[in-house]
Design a protein around this nucleic acid. Structure first.
Lengths: 116, 116
DNA sequence: TGACCATATAAGTGTATGATGATATGGTGT
DNA sequence: ACACCATATCATCATACACTTATATGGTCA
């Protein structure tokens, strides 16, 4: 039932969990697990300002969890599979219910295509 | 590589990670993964007051992670395997390096037996 | 170049959090 | 009952944090 995993420094691990302890960031990461998302999509999904979203993304990026991908005037974010915290993060996200309906709802509101 | 796990409410999951985002609490849980510990042992291990330790334990207990076990004038804590968050917590702790040397050091300083 | 859009940063604010010291609670043993 | 010890709670404080509004940065396209 238990598997061998690559251990992580305590400081790094607690920093990861502190970031994932915020509901908005946790859901952002869950979405990024299966979708490449841009800032404006997160703004459409969560009930906080663009500024707040941007600051959340910065924290996640500063910890090395995200890669950013500029395309035109948009910035797309993905999980960085090379991060030393990637395996741990993914393992955690397994416990979080899928949030695909949030993306579907975005599309219904016509906000998804704005970034394609 | 990935396993089927029992999903957890987002609120509960983020509450768990918020608690584990604190270095002291994270290490307390890691110790509790393989040892039954009493408050005074934690006080011996961490450089914070007895009051702070007690408050950390309370938060963990309030979330349902711990069971307490009064024996004489001591209160021993263990992980509660019946908690809906147990599986997730254990999965997380797998990534944390073993802290057994902290217990060994306690014994060397003669502080372990004080609770037997 | 200049208008426009997406994103990032700055500044400020209210609340949450982790810590401390002092005190209360409760069990033990005389 | 009393002193003693382990633990819990209370009051307080300084810092961290998530948020907002306003502004800066930087790309796109006429």
């Amino acid at each position: 039932m238990t598997m061998k995993v690559e251990e992580v420094e305590v400081e790094k691990a607690s920093a990861l969990m502190k970031l994932m302890g915020d509901r908005t960031r946790l859901l952002m990461l869950k979405l990024l697990e299966s979708n490449e998302c841009c800032v404006c999509e997160f703004v459409g999904i969560f009930k906080v300002s663009q500024s707040a979203i941007s600051q959340h993304l910065r924290k996640l990026k500063d910890l090395g969890l995200l890669k950013e991908n500029r395309r035109g005037q948009w910035v797309f974010y993905t999980l960085d599979a090379d991060s030393e915290l990637f395996e741990m993060a993914v393992q955690l996200l397994m416990f979080i219910p899928d949030q695909g309906e949030k993306i579907a709802e975005l599309e219904k509101r016509g906000l998804r295509i704005s970034c394609d």
